[in-house]
Design a protein around this nucleic acid. Structure first.
Lengths: 345, 345
DNA sequence: TTGTAAGCGTTATCAA
DNA sequence: TTGATAACGCTTACAA
């Protein structure tokens, strides 16, 4: 298995020319004689020559590699985003380096380091925090980056994100207009910028409708079905600081959390929207087919990915240097998980 | 922005030692004096030194990079698999190169080439076909590979897969035992090995219960919600060679196809399981919460990923050379999308 | 204990 | 039109 590696040097031997001639021929450099060019191409093809990207990158600084750093590879939310990114990356002849930070700053830092080490020409990242060591490191590094999903506090970064505050406002208001006044917020960990924004939107909606904000009604938990079930169980069992009769509706930071509520409904025997009305966020594929179909706020995920990669490639290939911020709008998708309490006309 | 790149050479200058001393110190080579070692580490840390993986890989042939090639990054089926893979890869200090072949052999070939070019030390691939130019190329190359999701025809390849034939048999038999005899098979494109296997299992189940196999009842379409809706619509409109009354149950090659049937039910106004009983395959997360909850055949996706990456890393790191084939078992998850026709006790 | 030097496979410059 | 050569940043004998 000590099989000879196919390099331009090896091709040169076979073709009886110098390796630099081979290099030029392979790049279709017009200085090379048509005949030799063809001969060399033929040999390369026969030997199934594959240029060594490492050597190439080392020498030319061009690796044609883009790093994508997200927080949860498995989440349908993120997968729609990087599906869109991946398609473009492929089409444009790049390769995608992908990694998962799992909402952990240390891991994020490591991921960024690795990608830079690997010679990624650019990075698209869904940052764990609005500002952090890793983000500052990223900005200092001469590597191009586009942030998605969250607005970084430093304005000198290109980014594409949906206005989470507005999303929460829309979702909460929808419930208020359906007559709900005691609305539970199933939020994510408060250290996440999206959770902070979402919370703000929720509060704003309540206030603008003269509803008092009760801190006990805001629950911050990791974004997962299991943890959501734990939360609901603790409310039902009386362990929590609120009881199951203290609210009539639930807003969730993400559809995954909303699915956790569906699971809880199954486990604890309550009904959606009979017992609780429910609004999610993201509009992931499955929500349409849930029982009942979930009312949720749509995030343009494909668009996010598309904008992000186009911005990045533009910066890389055309040396674009001014930073652009693209804010996308959330839109309410009304389905059947919200019941009308009939207080409002 | 012409910022000085931090290399061992640069650190060497700062530390007043030769660059090879730096290299050794950074590797904690015991021949280096404790004092100088510490000094060098300190400087490296201050300068935020990141080894250039390209140079490293070029010289040492170790890139710590694993390539993952799948057919549909967005599908929850695949994302569970590479989530599992990604976790291990990260934990073991590797990086993941990910790409999507979209069930296209040409793209697959390109993806393999790219990964080899990039110096990936190993590849985990869900192959488009059981045998193909790209697969043969992959075997000839000295790169380690593990196939998942499908059994390749060449036995000299490590692989991890679920027995799709058995899965189809279980699914179909489940319907037969519920009294169904006219069962529509919503299969994938016939060029896909999984479709071929699935078809076999379906046929086997029918035969073993003395039900005649009707080719018209087997539909091969791309695996997507949209194409499934198209198929159902053509049956309902009479354009197809079977009519809507010709069957009472449906088996699907994947849960995504099954979701397409749910969508069709919505669009065309039929009922599950009232009009048609339905069995899916994969047991993706959402199936449990569909309306009605989908009866499906579970594929151990996380296990698939885990086995695959462990096999691969074992081959890479321990030079394991014998190839191993791991076959995983599908298991029926009975929920509420199958109605009993009452013919059997 | 530290330093010198060759080489990994390219690109790119200059000379022939 | 072709060839020789240096350089990219690192690893790794071997020499000092």
């Amino acid at each position: 298995m000590k099989s000879q590696r196919i390099t331009i040097k090896y091709i040169a031997e076979r073709a009886n020319v110098s390796f630099s001639t081979v290099a030029k021929a392979l790049h279709n450099d017009p200085v090379i004689n048509e005949k030799t060019r063809e001969k060399i191409h033929k040999i390369a093809k026969e030997l199934n020559y594959r240029p060594n990207v490492l050597a190439k990158g080392l020498r030319s600084r061009k690796t044609k590699t883009i790093g994508i750093i997200l927080n949860d590879l498995q989440s349908p939310f993120y997968s729609e985003i990087y599906k869109a990114i991946g398609d473009i990356i492929n089409k444009r002849g790049y390769t995608m380096l992908l990694s998962d930070s799992s909402y952990d700053e240390e891991l994020e830092m490591k991921n960024i380091s690795t990608m830079i080490s690997q010679g990624a020409e650019g990075i698209i990242i869904s940052p764990v925090a609005r500002d952090s060591v890793s983000i500052r490191a990223l900005i200092e590094d001469p590597i191009k980056a586009v942030f998605i999903d969250n607005r970084p506090s430093n304005p000198n970064i290109s980014c594409v994100y949906v206005d989470h505050k507005e999303a929460a406002r829309i979702a909460t208001e929808h419930l208020i207009l359906a007559g709900h006044r005691n609305i539970l917020l199933l939020n994510g960990p408060l250290r996440l910028p999206s959770s902070q924004d979402f919370r703000e939107g929720y509060v704003e909606a309540l206030i603008s409708h003269d509803i008092e904000v009760d801190e006990k009604m805001i629950k911050n938990n990791p974004i997962s079905i299991e943890r959501t079930c734990d939360q609901m169980r603790s409310i039902f069992s009386g362990e929590d600081n609120i009881g199951k009769a203290d609210f009539t509706a639930i807003v969730c930071l993400s559809d995954v959390i909303a699915i956790g509520v569906y699971e809880s409904a199954l486990q604890m025997g309550f009904n959606i929207p009979g017992t609780y009305s429910l609004v999610g966020y993201d509009n992931i594929l499955a929500t349409k087919y849930l029982n009942p179909p979930l009312t949720t706020v749509h995030q343009p995920k494909e668009q996010t990915g598309l904008y992000a990669i186009n911005l990045l490639l533009d910066e890389i290939e055309n040396g674009h240097n001014e930073h652009r911020q693209i804010i996308l709008n959330p839109v309410l998708i009304s389905r059947s998980s919200v019941g009308n309490l009939g207080r409002n006309p």
